[in-house]
Computed example of a mutant assay.
Amino acid sequence: MPEPTARLLGASQVRELADRLGIRPTKQWGQNFVVDGNTVERIVRVAGVGPNDVVAEVGPGLGSLTLALLPAVRTVIALEVDPVLAAALPDTVGARAPDLAERLLVVHADALQVHTLPGPAPTALVANLPYNVSVPVVLRFLELFPTIERILVMVQLEVAERLAARPGSKAYGVPSAKAAWYADVRLAGTVSRSIFWPVPNVDSGLVAFERRSAPETTVSRADVFACVDAAFAQRRKTLRAALATWAGSPAEAERVCRAAGIDPTLRGERLDIHQFAALAEARGR
């Protein structure tokens, strides 16, 4: 049985495996493979997953993070869009961690297209997400899989800061507000670009999500999200102007704001998700 650290993929093993599979990382699928064992062990540690967890992993690639997750959790459900990588992952795990192979379920699918997952219900999402789909993947999994209690994702640092941003900050926007509907979100660390192959042009960040109850409201999530989208579509405008089309007119937007107890001269970047819910409720009154 391999020692725990011997299971992990280092830089030479990643390149050797990629060469053997004929893999050339593509921008289309945002492929940047982790080549540092310390980083994947850190991700598992910060994620706080344990032996009872069923972890969904999006974009496992060559298996760097998968091999670190398997010893720590009950099951890893790995979703991979690249058919070559999806087919190769069970062989990699079988060769490097044969005692853990039964814990792995591989799904060849686009994470933005799946509606269900095989096996037991996921309790966590832990992933090194392709930069180009990171926000929609996180929001989709929070929506589709209410059993997911925790998320720890590695994403482009700018995206990480945006997801974890608080009202009033420069980075606060649509992703921040929508993520806050589902969970408490925090920036859990930064990661150097040097741990990837190929090396990207940006550093990465770790974002942690702890699911909590959605805001209490009489309207749907879709209604609240439509208000969020309208408020940030014209970010520099006041709510009275930015919400005019959504509400029906500038005067109606002002009425809705006042009915919700919100100053119509504020901008959307000042509002938290509870205030957006109050606006969506007030529009219906």
Score class of each variant (00 low, 15 high):
P90G: 09
K170V: 15
A109K: 10
P175L: 09
L139R: 06
V135E: 11
A88Y: 00
A164Y: 05
R140W: 07
A95M: 13
G119P: 01
I77E: 04
A179W: 09
G119A: 07
K178T: 13
G168T: 09
P130C: 11
P130L: 06
L79W: 05
I148S: 05
A171Y: 13
G94I: 04
H108C: 14
P167V: 01
D91Y: 14
L105W: 14
D82E: 08
R140H: 14
V185N: 07
V159Q: 11
V73P: 02
L79I: 15
L79E: 06
L112S: 02
L125R: 03
F145L: 03
V133H: 10
I148W: 06
L85C: 02
S64M: 00
P146D: 02
V174L: 12
P122Q: 02
V106P: 04
F145E: 00
P83N: 05
P175V: 06
P118R: 13
V114E: 09
T147L: 12
P118Y: 05
L112Y: 02
T92N: 10
Y182H: 14
G119R: 11
P120D: 14
F141G: 00
K178R: 15
V185K: 12
V135N: 12
V137C: 05
N128G: 03
V153H: 04
L125V: 00
L70C: 00
A95S: 14
P120E: 15
V133D: 12
N132S: 15
K178W: 11
L144D: 03
L129C: 04
V93L: 09
L104Y: 06
V153L: 03
A124G: 09
A165N: 07
V126T: 01
V84R: 05
R140P: 06
L125H: 11
L117M: 06
L117T: 08
S64W: 01
L125S: 11
I148R: 07
V133T: 13
D91T: 14
T75K: 14
E102Q: 15
R166C: 11
A68G: 00
V137R: 02
S176R: 12
P90L: 11
